[in-house]
Amino acid sequence: MKKILLFSILLLGTSKLKAQDDLLNLIKDDKKPEPVTATFKATRIISGQSVETEPAHNLAYRVSHRFGAINSGSYQAFGLDQGYIYMGFDYGITDRLMVGIGRSSEQKMLNLFTKYKLLRQETEGGMPVSVTVFGGAYADMFKYSVEENRTSLSKYSYATQALIARKFSNDFSLQLMPTYLHRNRNNVNGEKNDVFAMGFAGRYKFSKRIALVGEYYYVLPNQINLKYTNALSFGFDIETGGHVFSLHFTNSTGMVEKQFLTETIDTWADGGIHFGFNLGRSFGLGKKFRNQYKVAK
């Protein structure tokens, strides 16, 4: 009987304890896997694409700049006297599908592209990676001399990529980019028209708004002339509201796939490094944004 009494006291004790917190415990946690957001801060990592797409009805204006090589010396202000520019507009048709148009000063290149989020990484228990597919077309608008004998068809190139990324933690993301590029005309004899490459990229966020990013594209051997090198870039993404500033160092001046994959000449080893930046400003277009922006009357 003594045992029972002790047992009953113990039981009553536990029920008392429960009563204090029980209201909150009544709320069921229906934790379903949710899509992971912000694997990367922008739709570009540095020169190449990230898994991110522009959200639905968002228009982004992009300006990217690459200065001359740092090893060009003080006469060229270590590269700051020269510049290559890319300007473009990106637009999100849905939250998964975006299109873009851009113009590069190098080769007077016009490019069109589209990206589609095929799979979205989800929190625990869901999809482990994000997969975005990319397709781009490039038109070289440069007026070549007659001797070069360029047909208009020869000025086009096309690229496709699978962008596979995983956000491992709040701060750390990695991305793989198997890439296929077709050039209607390559730059020199002996080069292949079809070029395969593998890209690697990562991001480490060391504060709420600043992240270190890196990007490297490895072009498989025996496809392009040995004078060309692989593009390697490092930079910082700085985010403030609707803007993302990306400041970086890279050995490539090209800002579209066709150029940075197969036409990168400079190398990090001999100081052929270019300082550059990307700026993006995103605007919401359409009905649902109407109440957000106030225009002075």
């Binding site: 957001t37 912000a38 959200p55 639905a56 968002n58 939250d95 985010e239 509201g241 609707g242 995103s282 919401g284 649902k288 944004f289 109440n291 957000q292």
Partner: peptide, 9 residues
């Protein structure tokens, strides 16, 4: 949020 970018931020 109507603006997904804001939601992310």
């Amino acid at each position: 949020f109507p603006n997904k970018l804001m939601q992310e931020h």
